[in-house]
C-alpha cells in the first residue's frame, strides 16, 4: 500500500517536472521567435513541411466528414420534416467542433509525430549538440521555426477542413438527397453567426495548433536520444496531443458556447 502511494507520488512529481521543463522550453521558444521573423525563409520551409504536406490529408478528410454528416443528418432531420436545416447542421458541427478538433487530431498524427521524430533523431545523432558547439542555438534555429509554422498552419488547415466539409455536405444534401439548394445556403447563412461560430472556431484551432506543436517540439527536444526513446516520444506526442485537444475542446466549448 505504501509503495503504491510512493509510486503515485513519484509519477505526479514526474508529471509536474515535465510540465515545468515544458514551460521553460516554451518560454525559450517565445524568446527566440524574433530571430525567426528576421529569417522568414526558415519559416517558409517549415510551413511547407508542417502545413502544405498535411493539405491533402485534411482536404480529403474534411470532404468525407462533411458528406457523412449530411447523410446522417438527413435521416434524422427528415423524421421531423426539417431537411431544410441540413446546411445549418453540417456547417455548425464543422465550424464549431469538427473542423478544429478533427483537423487538430489529424495534424497531431501527421505533422506532430513527424516533428517529434525529426527533432528526436537530430538529438540522437548529435546534430543538436553539434549546433550548440557551433554557437548556433538549436531552439532558435530548429524549434522556433517549427513551432511558429505549426501555429500558422493549424488555423489554415482547420478552415480548409470546414470549408471543404460544407462543400461535401452540399454535394450529398443537394446533389444526392435533393434538398433545395437555396434552402441549404440561406438557412446556413441565417443561423451561422460570424463572430459566434466562425471566429470561435478559428480561436479553437489556433489554441490547438499551439498545444500540438508545443507538445511535438518539446517531446522531440526532451526525447531520450536512442531509437527506443525517439519512438516513445513520438507515441507520446500523438497520445498527449489527442488528450490535450479533447480536454481543451471541452473547456473552450463550455466557455464559448455554454452558459457555464
Amino acid at each position: 500500500m505504501l509503495s503504491y502511494f510512493q509510486r503515485l507520488g513519484a509519477t505526479s512529481l514526474g508529471m509536474f517536472e515535465r510540465l515545468g521543463r515544458g514551460s521553460v522550453f516554451f518560454v525559450n521558444i517565445l524568446l527566440s521567435i524574433p530571430s525567426v521573423i528576421v529569417r522568414p525563409r526558415l519559416l517558409i520551409a517549415q510551413i511547407y513541411f508542417v502545413g502544405v504536406l498535411s493539405f491533402s490529408l485534411i482536404v480529403i478528410s474534411g470532404l468525407f466528414v462533411g458528406m457523412v454528416i449530411a447523410l446522417q443528418g438527413f435521416y434524422t432531420l427528415s423524421d421531423f420534416g426539417a431537411e431544410g436545416m441540413l446546411g445549418v447542421m453540417v456547417a455548425a458541427s464543422l465550424i464549431r467542433e469538427l473542423g478544429p478538433v478533427v483537423s487538430a487530431l489529424l495534424f497531431a498524427g501527421r505533422a506532430g509525430s513527424a516533428l517529434t521524430a525529426e527533432i528526436g533523431l537530430m538529438k540522437a545523432t548529435e546534430q543538436l549538440s553539434g549546433m550548440e558547439m557551433m554557437a548556433v542555438d538549436p531552439v532558435a534555429r530548429i524549434m522556433a521555426p517549427r513551432f511558429l509554422a505549426g501555429l500558422i498552419s493549424m488555423p489554415i488547415l482547420a478552415t480548409l477542413f470546414s470549408a471543404v466539409g460544407v462543400m461535401g455536405g452540399y454535394f450529398i444534401g443537394v446533389g444526392l438527397l435533393g434538398i433545395d439548394e437555396g434552402g441549404y445556403w440561406s438557412q446556413m447563412q441565417a443561423k451561422i453567426d460570424f463572430s459566434q461560430d466562425v471566429v470561435n472556431g478559428l480561436i479553437k484551432s489556433v489554441i490547438f495548433g499551439w498545444v500540438v506543436t508545443w507538445i511535438a517540439v518539446f517531446e522531440g527536444h526532451d526525447a531520450i536520444p536512442t531509437s527506443e526513446g525517439v519512438s516513445r516520444a513520438t507515441t507520446r506526442t500523438v497520445v498527449h496531443s489527442a488528450f490535450a485537444i479533447l480536454l481543451l475542446d471541452f473547456i473552450l466549448t463550455a466557455l464559448m458556447f455554454g452558459d457555464i
Binding site: Q127, E132, A135
Partner: peptide, 19 residues
C-alpha cells in the same frame, strides 16, 4: 559563451552533420 564557442571546433563521434 557562444562567442567563445565560435573559437572552438568540435568533431563529434558520429560527425553530427545536418542530414
Amino acid at each position: 559563451l557562444y562567442l567563445l564557442r565560435k573559437k572552438m571546433g568540435m568533431l563529434f563521434q558520429s560527425g553530427a552533420l545536418l542530414t
